[in-house]
Write a protein that binds this DNA or RNA. Structure first.
Lengths: 205, 205
DNA sequence: TAAATATACTTAACAGTGTTAAGTTTTCAA
DNA sequence: TTGAAAACTTAACACTGTTAAGTATATTTA
């Protein structure tokens, strides 16, 4: 069975090749410019070959997403060192804002486009890394409530509020909706101010 | 000069015809299904005719957006009756959430897609109705601070936080990102809970 | 009134998109 | 060496936004 295993390994290698080319392409040229033909050209294959390794373009984008989540989670490792759950939640928010602003193309794919969600639906699979981040968020909110640092409410309510806000800020910024509210040079700072304000405000008196 | 005025009026009528057809189309079939050819077919014109009335597709979508903003603002008229600025801000948020959930296609265009912003940029114009809504938001925050109902900070910080959150909730919901956090049947309620929570929380003790 | 001009609109095409069916080349086992 | 299976490509379909060139239809001028 060594031979069939090697075949499988080769297949995985080409899958990786396709995904790496895709990611390079949309980091360099932006998400909207990624096309099946351009990906194929980069790896010197015919466009139709990609369909032997992935069901459709959405599925390719879905897998790019997954590596985006890993990228995002990797910056959160140092987080476990922070004891105060509010402070930890705050830092999670800061990391989230920074990730979004520094990787707008990835962010777009992970949280704004619906192509990846279509793929996810078609495949009947779950997010794994995405769910993991969500679980961490709920956990820290729960901990803060248990320690009496937050007024006790449904965990989902607060988790949704916090995620909603940071996502709202990043996605409005990415889509140029904040330009009229605040000058470009103050934008990043104001976004962080808003986050600071939320966490200071929600802290139990 | 009556004749040139009539000509101008006819031109405006065809512009309206195009816009109405576009809006019907994307309310019925969704934003992503709107194409120049389909719009043209609806009004029994050749696709290229549309380019005699609008610079490109983005410009058409931009004007659809504008009527979306009017739709949105129209539901905010009753708002001026509310005296308490916090209560008014709350109701603005409620209206925002409802508009987004009831008109996801419009919302998509107005706050998520970047086609309209491209058009806006190309035309060198401003949002008018969009800016108006933003001004109203800043105003109510300002008023709440002046009346001592909110801790005084930069108005933009709080306005951005509140808008960020409601936009975050709506856009995450529209793009199916909240499905894993909360069951579908509780989603709308939880979104409103989050908004309630924010406003209760930010109210000065 | 007839010719010239300006307006309104269409046809045909370009260059691109995702995707599929059918055909070809390569690889490998019997 | 032959035959089957796997890997890959060519050609095509049905779309997309957009433009250049051509055709009718009004309107203005001589």
């Amino acid at each position: 069975m060594g031979i069939v295993a090697r075949k499988e390994k080769q297949k995985q290698e080409i899958r990786s090749l396709i995904l790496e080319a895709s990611m390079k392409l949309f980091v360099e040229e932006g998400f909207s410019k990624v096309s099946v033909r351009k990906i194929a050209e980069r790896i010197q294959y015919s466009p139709t070959t990609l369909y032997l390794y992935f069901k459709d373009k959405n599925e390719i984008l879905f897998h790019c997403c997954e590596s985006g989540f890993e990228k995002m989670l990797s910056q959160n490792i140092a987080l476990t060192l922070i004891n105060d759950p509010i402070e930890r939640l705050h830092q999670m928010g800061v990391n989230y804002l920074n990730f979004g602003l520094e990787n707008p193309e990835y962010y777009d794919l992970m949280f704004i486009q619906d192509a990846p969600m279509c793929a996810l639906h078609d495949m009947g699979k779950g997010w794994s890394s995405g769910d993991q981040a969500l679980e961490a968020l709920k956990m820290v909110v729960h901990e803060a409530m248990q320690k009496g640092l937050l007024v006790s409410t449904k965990v989902e309510t607060v988790a949704m509020a916090v995620w909603g806000m940071v996502h709202g800020l990043v996605s409005l910024a990415i889509r140029q909706r904040l330009d009229k509210l605040v000058p470009a040079e103050d934008m990043e700072q104001t976004m962080h101010d808003s986050l600071d304000w939320l966490l200071k405000t929600m802290k139990k008196a």
